[in-house]
Design a protein around this nucleic acid. Sequence first.
DNA 1: GATTGTGAAGGTATTCACAGCA
DNA 2: TGCTGTGAATACCTTCACAATC
Lengths: 256, 256
Amino acid sequence: MATGRTHRPATRSRGIPEATVARLPLYLRALTALSERSVPTVSSEELASAAGVNSAKLRKDFSYLGSYGTRGVGYDVEYLVYQISRELGLTQDWPVVIVGIGNLGAALANYGGFASRGFRIAALIDADPAMAGKPVAGIPVQHTDDLEKIITENGVSIGVIATPAGAAQQVCDRLVAAGVTSILNFAPTVLTVPDGVDVRKVDLSIELQILAFHEQRKAGEEGGTEAPVVAPAVHGSPAAVDRKGPDGDVPAVMPA
Amino acid sequence: MATGRTHRPATRSRGIPEATVARLPLYLRALTALSERSVPTVSSEELASAAGVNSAKLRKDFSYLGSYGTRGVGYDVEYLVYQISRELGLTQDWPVVIVGIGNLGAALANYGGFASRGFRIAALIDADPAMAGKPVAGIPVQHTDDLEKIITENGVSIGVIATPAGAAQQVCDRLVAAGVTSILNFAPTVLTVPDGVDVRKVDLSIELQILAFHEQRKAGEEGGTEAPVVAPAVHGSPAAVDRKGPDGDVPAVMPA
DNA sequence: GATTGTGAAGGTATTCACAGCA
DNA sequence: TGCTGTGAATACCTTCACAATC
């Protein structure tokens, strides 16, 4: 779900599998909570359950980082927090810009977990001149015109796009041209970027649609009641032949 | 990344692999765009590139749904839109409640892609009495006290949690008790739910941390120009064989 | 000739289950 | 005895490559 372009085998980066990397933040969060409660050590079983994964997976994940546990005892909380933080690159802090300070951008700017976890908002950028200078989350919004300058002067390599879909690709291009190499995209668009740039996408409607899929299945399962499927009568289209799907009548397509 | 609890093999649901389900919304979005431009048919190659995946994968994905294409020609756009919508359960519309109307909740409420894609905001709910009655995105906010009533009366089965982390589990429990079986969680917490309830999680700081991981790697690769990595004198990670024990300088742990 | 649909091959990820160590 | 670390087994996903079909 990341990767700059279709190529790049999404292969494990430096020996650590992508799937493992995606779980490290989860472990880190659970560990941080334990650390705050001054818990000195934790077993794979306990930690796994706090992170919502199973313990074998967790141990395998940690084994990619090294042997940081003690047999018969468990893991030293502080030590693990440090090792994972380092592995994730959180021992330095990353200046981040957020582009598009609408409802969502403002929500992101106000999100507390930001500063506390290795990231620092270097700037908020919006295309609306009326926003310029207005403080959001205590940070004055700057105009898109200065985007390149802001990126360069602050050494920003991570950008967050929270603009409308229509503007996202253009903003992305400018960010990349200015030197950003990692992008978190909240706009509902597929971004095209050159090799070497990572894009991750967060998309509300995709998540909801996935839930709807499972929800529908649940409804259909029990009692077999439901009969939601309307079944199209093969339209001017294909596979009249051996095609499976029910037939009935078609579209009435989606809105937009 | 979903699934109710550790168990449930995350197995394919009704023959359609989870990975495929997660891509259907992507295809649907690309198809909808084509549909709006009145494009009648599309090849796997074209559609795949619009959706940002490779064409073999797309064809394989579609093959799980049925044989909806025409060899030598491609796919009928309208027909596919309909089939995918149906598969995702978007031919009905799902009432959704959003709990926690802070910055993020408001942003979600204002998110346009909502109504247009098979979902309808049935209610906005917040624990702050001062919010009650105040309209957000044209919908009056209701108080948490009425949560159960709202869920039941509207037949809501999908809930969105946008509360602070501390309140999330409790809200989740109430939603589930009231009949919600799918939850989209924006709070940075692991939710525990009974079997049969799906949870999906959207987490800004996790995404950023994953980006930071890759970003760090990039910096390390090239000529080392960047030189950002502070590199604790500590030993390398893996191959250090029997690596072990905190010695020398360790932690300097994360804030929170 | 073009493009789909799909077996088969190749990877990646998860889980099992137990040897090894504190 | 208790718990980690990890090979081996399994499950899942992606990609290849080509026969089937329009």
